[in-house]
């Protein structure tokens, strides 16, 4: 372009040997600098396969797709843990709406539920992810700001305190579901709010929205000792998660949709935990909600309408 005269400040771009050498040197050091900044990529171990990258949303998977996905998960788990898992996609049962009732008079704060949950649901052990948080509360108040999250006395219960375990409340109007920008979390027909771990983008908006501190993020690659892996797994439940996605309590979908109790209930030594189908008038939970004088839905004022009820022996 003959008319293109550069401004006086810039040198004329003449193609001399010197400018060629200089430009090459600039280009080479530029490439070297970019390569150096990308160097940590060499430590990447968990590489996304094309199959994983293109996997569709849970609700768009055909039964044949799901079979392939489950086979892939089985392969991946076996490769990583040398344990052959049984992975299934358990569906909600007809005429079932799960409800949890927790007796605050009985809970002794032993945290056995916390650890049974971790063992059942294949949470990362390092850093450890726990779905249940037990608060030690001074006698007489439900103000959670007065609660102690890190109590560790020689023995429980302690005089003058009661204990309040909090986990996902499986709300009827879940704030977390509403805010998810990609529909990676939703409420199932049996009332359980689930997460498609393969669809979640990890924005943590649900974690900010949850009024119960029920959601947990995989801040790094989860690690579970091979001999601690629970091989009975479900797609929406306790299959191992990857770095960068959300997880939370799902009422032990892999147990409860098979007619078993959640792990936290089974382990409770005080009988403080009751679980069942509220649509069945003969269930224990239906009986509790019918006959107890007082029961509490945490933070009723935020309008989430939990399926988790706290009650007392009165």
């Amino acid at each position: 372009m003959p008319t293109d005269t550069p401004p006086p400040a810039a040198p004329a771009p003449a193609l001399s040997r010197r400018s060629f050498l200089r430009n090459s040197a600039v280009l080479a050091s530029g490439i070297a600098a970019v390569a150096a900044s990308l160097a940590p990529l060499r430590e990447l171990t968990d590489i996304t396969s094309m199959e994983q990258f293109l996997q569709k949303h849970y609700k768009e998977l055909t039964p044949a797709d799901m079979e392939q996905v489950l086979a892939r998960i089985t392969r991946d788990v076996e490769k990583q843990y040398q344990v052959r898992p049984h992975v299934a996609d358990y569906k909600p049962m007809d005429g079932v709406e799960f409800v949890y009732c927790l007796n605050l008079t009985r809970c002794i704060g032993c945290r056995k539920c916390v650890h049974a949950c971790v063992a059942e649901n294949n949470q990362s052990r390092s850093p450890e992810i726990q779905y249940i948080r037990v608060l030690k509360m001074p006698h007489g108040s439900l103000d959670m700001e007065k609660g102690d999250h890190n109590y560790s006395p020689a023995s429980v219960p302690e005089k003058g305190f009661f204990y309040m375990p909090v986990q996902c409340q499986q709300c009827k109007n879940p704030a977390c579901v509403k805010v998810c920008p990609v529909k990676a979390t939703w409420q199932e027909a049996d009332g359980i709010t689930v997460i498609d771990y393969d669809w979640c983008i990890g924005c943590r908006y649900c974690e900010a929205a949850c009024p119960y501190f029920a959601r947990r993020f995989n801040w790094t690659k989860p690690s579970i000792p091979k001999d601690r892996l629970n091989p009975n797994m479900s797609y929406l439940g306790n299959r191992p998660r990857r770095q960068g996605v959300m997880e939370k309590c799902h009422f032990c979908i892999q147990r409860t949709r098979q007619g078993r109790y959640p792990a936290c209930l089974e382990v409770c030594p005080a009988g403080a935990r009751k679980f069942g189908n509220v649509l069945d008038p003969n269930s224990e939970v239906a009986h509790i909600l019918r006959t107890k004088r007082v029961f509490i839905q945490l933070k009723e004022e935020v309008g989430t309408s939990p399926r988790f009820f706290y009650y007392f022996d009165v």
Binding site: T48, F53, H57, C180, P181, V182, K183, A184, W199, C200, I201, G202, C203, R204, F217, N218, R242, Q243, G244, V245, M246
Partner: peptide, 20 residues
């Protein structure tokens, strides 16, 4: 940079992903 899984950004694209 705040996303846990930036490789899944396409889930946010209306039409291709699941746009809530």
């Amino acid at each position: 940079v705040d996303l846990g899984r930036p490789d899944r950004f396409w889930h946010l694209i209306p039409g291709i992903g699941q746009f809530n």
